[in-house]
Simulated assay, not measured.
Amino acid sequence: MSRPPFLLPPEPDAPFPPAELALSEPDGLLAVGGDLSPVRLLNAYAGGIFPWFSEGQPVLWWSPDPRMVFRTDGVRLSSRFRRTLRSSTWTVAADTAFARVMQACADAPRPGQDGTWITAAMHRAYVQLHQLGYAHSVEVFDGMQLVGGIYGVAIGRMFFGESMFSGRSGASKVALAALARTLYGWGWPLIDAQVENPHLLRMGAAHLPRDAFLARVRTLVQDAETEPAGSWTRRFGHWPASVLAVSAPV
């Protein structure tokens, strides 16, 4: 490590250092400290930065290089999985169970991880962002039972994915594909997937150099006036997961 990460001042609206100054080791660590207030979180995401830390640590802020992203027309579901979806009775909706999705993501076991990075403080912070219309979830239901989901933060036409879970095999795939299909239809081109993960790579995620990612983010978040914050429940709708059996995104 050539230098320590930047120490954030206590003021929630204090600017972040440019993401381009993040460390290469550990990859993407930019700053430490501050809080998870809405204004700080929104400033972070708009600058291509996200929080990631464990219980007992100070808040750590990251912007890795390269960045993992999905094109919203590029999420892949295998032919075999699509065949199973043809007869699926699952349905998908948005912003009807945000806190439950986030808690399920926190509770989901992760290979090689002991515990969760979704701390109680982070849960409270993102529920507050959801109430303000910036954090959203896509839910997968089997009847009335929540079986999968994904959540993240939206600013303008940019969606920053945070975590997803499967209570049933394949349910997180359905949540991600439903999110991508919907965003593609809205004209949103990218979903931030943050860091490399073999599962995400198999589903179509790709590396994007940080400078290219930041350039896209800076353009897309400027559409906040045409894509204002608010609930997605009505706009997203409630529809059958079997729609995703077809290969086209729309």
Rank of each mutant, 00 (worst) to 15 (best):
S79Q: 12
T96A: 15
A46D: 12
L85G: 01
A94W: 02
R86M: 07
C105W: 00
D27G: 08
T91Y: 12
R67M: 02
F50T: 01
A93R: 00
L77G: 00
W90G: 05
I49C: 06
P111Q: 13
W90R: 06
E55M: 14
P38T: 03
Q103A: 14
V69M: 05
G112R: 02
Y45P: 05
T89E: 15
R40T: 00
P111F: 03
S88V: 05
W62F: 11
M68G: 06
W52E: 06
G56S: 10
V92M: 02
P51Q: 01
P38M: 08
E25Q: 14
L42P: 05
S37C: 04
F53E: 05
L29T: 04
D107N: 11
R82K: 03
D27H: 14
P109E: 01
A46N: 13
P51F: 01
E55I: 14
D73K: 06
G33R: 04
R100S: 13
R110W: 12
Q103D: 14
D65M: 08
T72K: 04
P38S: 05
P66W: 00
A93G: 04
P58G: 02
L29N: 01
F81H: 00
M68Q: 09
V39L: 11
A106W: 06
A31R: 08
Q113N: 11
T96S: 15
S37W: 03
T84W: 12
L29W: 04
R80W: 05
R100Q: 15
A108V: 13
P38R: 08
L36W: 10
G56C: 12
S79F: 07
V39Y: 10
G33A: 06
V32H: 09
Q103S: 12
R76I: 00
A104L: 10
R83S: 13
T84K: 10
D35V: 13
S79P: 09
P111W: 09
S78L: 00
T72W: 11
R110M: 13
D107S: 10
Q57H: 14
Q113L: 09
P38A: 08
R40H: 00
I49S: 01
Q57T: 12
V32G: 07
L60I: 12
A44W: 05
D73C: 09
F50S: 03
A94K: 07
V32F: 10
S63M: 09
M102K: 07
F53D: 05
P64L: 06
S63V: 10
F70W: 07
A44D: 10
G115F: 13
L42F: 04
L41W: 03
S88M: 02
A106Y: 15
P58C: 11
R83I: 12
R83D: 15
P66A: 03
V75C: 00
E25L: 13
G115D: 10
P109K: 05
G112W: 10
D73L: 11
R100K: 15
G33I: 10
G56D: 04
E25G: 09
M68D: 03
T96G: 13
P111L: 08
R86A: 07
V59D: 07
D107H: 09
A97F: 04
R86K: 06
F70L: 07
P109D: 02
E55Y: 12
G33C: 06
